[in-house]
Design a protein around this nucleic acid. Structure first.
Lengths: 373, 373
DNA sequence: GCCAGTTAAACAACACTGTTTCCTAAGTGC
DNA sequence: GCACTTAGGAAACAGTGTTGTTTAACTGGC
């Protein structure tokens, strides 16, 4: 056993246990908009009613939850309903694009208290851009409900980047106004420094967009694939309810899968990439053909990962949502005819153009509710 | 919050906390064949030295670990080395094929104490086959070291199947000797009933084979893809060190990814499946061409999931290991030329033909060392 | 209208976790 | 030989969920 750098498994102590169970309870209450009773929490968590009593007492004292009426009696004392207190905390979600910036503030229930989109000058120096972002975040924070805890800022932006370190790995030519070196730029730390150390989390836009989709079932959710078609073709993968990023935050390279072994060359160096074929159809304005190709890739994805749900998003999809829904659904049906594979529902991102920003906020909120990083 | 069926998040109590930390310590010691000191365990887990002292005292009293000499001094009292006591427990790994059965018994360190392979009559009634398996497992159990705890039996076999319920979903024509209905056959419960309730875990062969590979780094490991080429083409996925099975244990359908959009039809109903193309080359005896195709699929996999390591196995691969190593490596290099994507090492399964059985045993051993299900 | 039965939730004592504080054991180096 | 360093244990502690018991609140039969 050699001396460790640092990564590795983490032991848990009493405080960790408490937080884990509290997060579990909060997560269950978040999933129940009308509130839940202590009894239900006990059966769902497997903890004793007494433990739930103590946990909820702590959460009530902290103002994280409130009692909200009673359920109908089932023959005895009626259950007291507990509800998440949405105003107890809030988080900022940022969508940082080349030429546009979206910043929103949401509370614990995901309700938007502030939303602003503004253009960005492409090619600006990183320091200038980050200052603009910090300024917009400050404006958003002004909308914080009184007494709410500021949980942090989530940023969704294009890859490649390193989520764990919060460092961008963009390839950008030198901008017109001097240095615009985004390669190895420590976005997380630079932004945090301009926001008095407020916690900042950085992730790929496709990853946060996947988080924007409200879970269909109780946590932990199953497998969800968010497929994004705009200037490029990427995906965000939610496996067992948690984002799968890979060691280098490179997972989700959906567009560069080979679907034509000896197909046309791609800028990435590969041949027959799905993205090349798909973007060619897009340039031709043929959304149906593009949808068919996306469907081929989605079928590969579903089969490889046993995905439960597919969500489509991105400018191209939002321009012709039905075409993509139909095209992808048809390909799934045609390419996975096996009756033992239950049909996979395909939808368009409910958050629409805001998906990345909404999911970026969820990046911050999630851990509070026991969602794994 | 409606009443729950049952699945969902599980609360943790004090006993769970203790087991979690104990498993963490055992996992670290397993990864250190020469033993580790209490100090190292403390820094690795993040627990206080005192907590480690108590945990190791319990494990020593239980006979799970032993003190094994001292490390060199670094200026003070030398560290006492702790080692996993391999004979403290053992598990059975079973590889159930159509026409062959392999059963082995391993101890906590993975050393094989019993190994037996015998032919099976294809088309037998399930009850008969399971009785044969139970008999061989009993023979294996006879080799259990004195005092070792029996942890259970892991079974790796072909899919489709339901890991959580331990139920097979094989499609088999009626056998020559009457009923041989393996569809919906509850293998786990039937086998457990014949083994006095010994815990039994059932999983896909490709999944267990992925577990057979010794982890490269400290837990949790990164992403590992085990690719199996024999009569079919499948994969087992280890993401963040844990098996990814999907909701229906259907993940890993590597062979039925489309790599030729309008390619030849496949028995699965799709067109241009990797498996069809690959098996065609195999029938032609052209391993190099098959390897190239496998490499195309592996490149897709690596990019989609940011895989760290690729392991090849299966009869076809073992027949010409170097051809596949070279072929797959070459495709990875050619199709992912981006210098930011670090090269992904490709190896042949170290356990060779025993990979499935070895991994099946790990299916049982893993949880003891904190490996997630 | 009353009272037994039922269900929800709190109170009190408890067992056990890792933590803190202190002390002892066993080396190194001048 | 002695100061210093490091490993590891003992005792008291804080705080978790658990067990056993009691109280609160509603339903339903008489």
């Amino acid at each position: 056993m050699t001396t460790p750098p640092h990564p590795g498994p983490s032991g848990t102590n009493l405080a960790g246990l408490r937080d884990h169970n509290a997060a579990l309870v909060l997560g269950l209450l978040r999933a129940a908009p009308h509130g839940g009773s202590r009894v239900e929490l006990a059966t769902r968590t497997g903890l004793t009613p007494q433990a739930i009593g103590k946990i909820t007492a702590r959460l009530l004292a902290d103002g994280m939850i409130v009692e909200a009426g009673q359920a109908a009696s089932t023959g005895g004392k009626p259950r007291t309903l507990l509800q998440l207190r949405a105003e107890a905390g809030c988080a900022v979600g940022v969508h940082l694009e080349r030429d546009e910036l979206t910043v929103l503030l949401v509370d614990l229930a995901g309700r938007q208290h502030h939303l602003h989109t503004r253009p960005l000058e492409d090619g600006s120096a990183p320091a200038d851009t980050v200052s603009v972002v910090a300024g917009e975040v400050r404006r958003a924070l002004a909308a914080t409900p009184p007494g709410a805890r500021l949980l942090g800022v989530g940023v969704g932006t294009r890859g490649p980047l390193d989520h764990a370190a919060g460092i961008l790995h963009w390839f950008t030519p030198a901008g017109p106004r001097g240095s615009s070196d985004w390669h190895h730029y420590p976005l997380r730390d630079e932004l945090a420094a301009r926001l008095d150390g407020l916690p900042v989390i950085v992730d790929k836009d496709t990853n946060t967009a996947a988080l924007a989709e409200p879970p269909a079932g109780p946590p932990p959710g199953g497998g969800l694939a968010y497929v994004h078609l705009a200037a490029g073709l990427g995906a965000g993968l939610l496996l067992d309810g948690a984002l799968h990023r890979g060691t280098r935050t490179n997972a989700g390279e959906f567009g560069h899968q080979t679907v034509q072994v000896d197909g046309p060359p791609c800028a990435c160096g590969n041949h027959g990439c799905l993205e090349v074929l798909c973007l060619a159809e897009l340039r031709r304005g043929d959304h149906a053909a593009a949808a068919r190709l996306v469907g081929v890739g989605v079928a590969n994805l579903v089969r490889l990962l046993d995905i439960d749900r597919v969500v489509l998003g991105g400018r191209a999809v939002l321009a012709a949502p039905d075409t993509y829904l139909d095209g992808v659904t048809a390909q799934l049906k045609a390419r996975i005819p096996d009756p033992d594979w239950q049909p996979v529902p395909v939808t368009v991102s409910t958050a629409g153009r805001l998906a990345v920003a909404v999911g970026a906020a969820e990046l911050v909120l999630g851990p509070l509710f026991g969602r794994r990083t």
